[in-house]
């Protein structure tokens, strides 16, 4: 059973990693905590569900949802975050919270408050052994997350835009002085980050067979926890923290038991860690 639990934890961790990645990238360059990213997660799930229901093609539904949400990310940075960059940090933070609430309520009004089922048939079956069953959604989540993270890693490590991103993350002012086109970096960043969130949203919708307006709530707060645990805008750290939290939650909930619901575990961990090491677990700064 332990293997099953570990696998379960890994799946959850993958989803967390994907959810938190967009916000981590944003924090990395703009030092803005982008809660609205979790709104993109819910938008992605809804868009994916409706496309799937109307076309019956899961591939098309992923592609459409990603394109739509990526475009939304572009609009958000262009018309909301870039103009308030030189304000105190609480201004973009409150703006992002406002946008998040707005998105959630809009989804509720447009699509209704009830939970919708998301039963997609995948073009491959479950893997079964004597002790272990890996259902197709799990396979999809693990493979897709790995592929997207590998793609991101390639982008950051080997391409021009990745170099620009890293320079900007080091020091926005210096990067600007060196001639990096900051607006372009930020635009790519949001396109990609929101697309990741949308992917995560669809996959979670399928995993739990439910899509609902406030489905971004828990990921939103957990995402913040992961950014901090992962070292404030460090993509590798975020993945590590996501997998770690996914496993810890699953194991504690499965074996030890905790008097609060499993979602509270990440928060308790977050509060404790912030108190002990306010700069985050794997912080790059001294």
């Amino acid at each position: 059973m332990i293997v099953q639990q570990l696998l379960n934890g890994l799946v959850i961790g993958s989803v967390y990693a994907l959810t938190a990645m967009g916000a981590t990238l944003v924090y990395g360059i703009l030092r803005i905590l982008d809660l609205a990213n979790a709104g993109a997660y819910a938008i992605g799930a809804y868009a994916g569900l409706f496309l799937y229901l109307s076309t019956g093609n899961i591939l098309l539904s992923f592609a459409g949802a990603i394109a739509l949400t990526g475009f939304f990310g572009f609009v958000v940075q262009r018309y909301l975050y870039i103009p308030v960059l030189d304000r105190p940090p609480i201004v973009p933070l409150i703006a992002s919270i406002g946008l998040f609430i707005f998105i959630q309520d809009l989804l509720r009004l447009v699509a209704g408050p009830r939970i919708r089922e998301f039963q997609a048939s995948l073009p491959f079956g479950a893997i079964k052994t004597e002790t272990l069953t890996i259902n197709p959604t799990w396979i999809l989540i693990i493979v897709l997350t790995a592929a997207l993270l590998a793609f991101l890693w390639y982008l950051l490590a080997y391409t021009k835009i990745g170099l620009a991103w890293r320079a900007t993350a080091q020091d926005l002012e210096i990067a600007k002085a060196m001639g990096v086109n900051i607006n372009q970096v930020v635009a790519y960043n949001f396109l990609l980050g929101y697309a990741f969130a949308a992917t995560a949203g669809i996959m979670v919708g399928m995993l739990y067979n439910s899509v609902f307006p406030t489905m971004g709530d828990v990921p939103a707060y957990k995402m913040l926890a992961l950014i901090v645990l992962g070292g404030l805008g460090n993509p590798v750290g975020t993945v590590a923290a996501a997998v770690m939290i996914g496993l810890i939650e699953t194991l504690i909930a499965g074996y030890i038991g905790f008097f609060l619901p499993r979602d509270a575990i990440a928060f308790v961990a977050l509060i404790i860690i912030l108190l002990i090491k306010p700069e985050g677990l794997m912080s790059r700064k001294a």
């Binding site: 103009p83 308030v84 201004v91 409150i94 406002g98 946008l99 707005f102 309520d105 009004l109």
Partner: peptide, 20 residues
Amino acid sequence: SDYRMLLYGGLLVLMMRFQP
């Protein structure tokens, strides 16, 4: 009353953007 959170969210965004 049904649009309460929509209103709060929208106002927050607009205020932060134009009149922090």
